[in-house]
Amino acid sequence: MANHTPRTSESTQQLKEDLHHLTQTVEELVNATADDSRSNIKELRDRAEKRLKDTRERLEARGERVYGEARDTVTQQAEACDRYVHDNPWTSIGIGAAMGVVVGMLIGRR
Rank of each mutant, 00 (worst) to 15 (best):
D72R: 10
V66G: 03
A48M: 03
A70F: 09
D72H: 11
K50R: 10
V74L: 03
A48T: 05
E57Q: 08
Q77M: 14
A80H: 12
A70C: 06
T55K: 01
E64K: 15
V66T: 12
V85P: 06
R83H: 00
R71D: 13
Y84K: 08
E64S: 11
K53R: 14
E57K: 08
Q77C: 09
A61H: 15
T75E: 07
A70K: 10
K53G: 07
R51D: 11
E49V: 11
R62V: 11
L59I: 15
D87Y: 01
A80M: 08
R71Y: 13
H86T: 08
E69V: 11
L59H: 06
E60S: 07
R56T: 12
E60H: 09
Y84M: 09
E64L: 14
K50P: 04
E69Q: 11
L52V: 07
D87T: 11
P89I: 00
T55Q: 08
T75P: 02
G63T: 04
E69C: 05
D72M: 03
A61K: 15
A61W: 10
P89M: 02
G63D: 03
R62K: 04
T75V: 11
R47L: 00
T73E: 15
R58P: 03
K53P: 05
E49R: 08
Y67P: 05
A78S: 13
R83A: 00
Y84A: 06
Y84P: 04
A70M: 10
E79H: 01
E60A: 10
N88E: 14
E60N: 07
K53E: 13
A48N: 01
D87L: 04
R65F: 04
D87Q: 07
N88I: 02
Y67N: 13
R62E: 15
R65E: 08
Q76D: 12
K50I: 06
E60R: 07
K53A: 13
R47P: 09
K53D: 12
K53V: 08
D54T: 12
E69W: 06
D82G: 03
R51G: 02
V66I: 12
E64F: 09
Q77T: 03
Y67D: 13
D72S: 10
Q76T: 13
C81I: 14
Y67V: 12
V74R: 05
A78W: 05
R56E: 13
K50D: 07
R83Q: 09
R62D: 15
A78G: 09
Y67G: 10
A61F: 06
E60G: 05
Y84E: 08
H86D: 06
L59K: 02
K50E: 09
T73Y: 08
A48S: 07
V74S: 01
L59E: 06
T73C: 11
D87N: 11
